[in-house]
């Protein structure tokens, strides 16, 4: 359903992504793992043109696009069929929770305001926030905001949802409620590409893992193989380091010794 070939991206002189090839099948949950600064987020942002890749091919929904000269219309048509969940939630501050959810279907003309509200309430129900429908983002906790953001992402019935470190800005207690919603979506067959540091989520909810380091895909395997039989020494290192913060700590201690 989504296929990326030879994607390249650099900022000024620094190459961030080097010849990325990947594909995501319909109904599949792909987790993108890797240390900080490996280009995971940039890769995800290139999928939705929040960053523009320098070159490469993107096949989405059966249509092939050349990334170096993609038109505004092509970008708009791809964005209408995808959704994005941000690390920092990015809810519209001037809209209530329900207002945020209905915005997409209403502006794209997919639904009337009334239809969108009915659907919006169902989605808020799904993420457990129906009672917060008329609250503004400033009145919600981080975990609640992120769940509203997920409901907003679902509202346009996207072919795929991109998650950019959706729990990184949350404390452990709030992480759980967001990961629960995401796991539910995974079991329901929603196509997802998730950049994350949550290894247990990746292990339990993802079908396939892509491991990125220094802008290159070093390993691509089923979740089971990735965690149980890693072959690449860097992946073994990464998994041994556990969560990223721990890995950073080890690095710091090493440099001190």
């Amino acid at each position: 359903m989504l296929k990326v070939e030879h994607l390249k991206k650099s900022f000024q002189d620094t190459t961030v992504l080097e010849d990325i090839n990947l594909n995501v099948e319909k109904g599949e949950v792909v987790a993108v793992l890797g240390p900080s600064g490996s280009g995971k987020t940039t890769l995800l942002r290139c999928m939705n043109f929040l960053e523009r890749a320098d070159s490469g091919l993107l096949t989405f929904d059966g249509v092939q696009h050349r990334l170096e000269r993609i038109s505004k219309e092509e970008i708009a048509s791809i964005r209408r069929k995808t959704a994005f969940v941000f690390q920092s939630f990015n809810l519209f501050a001037n809209r209530t929770a329900l207002g945020n959810v209905i915005e997409g279907p209403v502006v794209t003309g997919k639904m009337t305001v009334h239809e969108a509200k009915v659907r919006g309430m169902q989605l808020l129900e799904k993420v457990g926030l129906a009672d917060r429908a008329d609250h503004y983002p400033a009145e919600l906790s981080g975990g609640q905001q992120q769940r509203v953001a997920i409901a907003r992402a679902l509202a346009t019935d996207p072919e795929i949802i991109y998650f950019d470190e959706p729990t990184s800005a949350l404390d452990p207690k709030l992480k759980g409620e967001v990961l629960k919603v995401m796991s539910d979506l995974a079991t329901e067959g929603v196509t997802m590409m998730v950049v994350t540091h949550e290894l247990s989520f990746a292990r339990n909810a993802a079908h396939r893992i892509i491991y990125l380091e220094n802008g290159e895909i070093l390993e691509e395997a089923s979740a089971k193989d990735f965690f149980e039989h890693p072959t690449n020494p860097k992946v073994i290192d990464f998994l041994a380091g556990g969560d990223e913060p721990k890995e950073l700590e080890t690095k710091e201690t090493n440099s001190l010794n």
């Binding site: 043109f49 964005r79 994005f84 941000f86 990015n90 519209f92 997409g104 502006v107 907003r152 346009t156």
Partner: peptide, 23 residues
């Protein structure tokens, strides 16, 4: 107005002018 909200606007399918007018 934070850039993140503008990006979110694009991601739910808004055009530049819709992002400006609505958000």
């Amino acid at each position: 107005v934070p850039v993140g909200q503008i990006e979110a606007g694009y991601c739910v399918g808004m055009s530049y002018f819709q992002v400006m007018r609505r958000i």
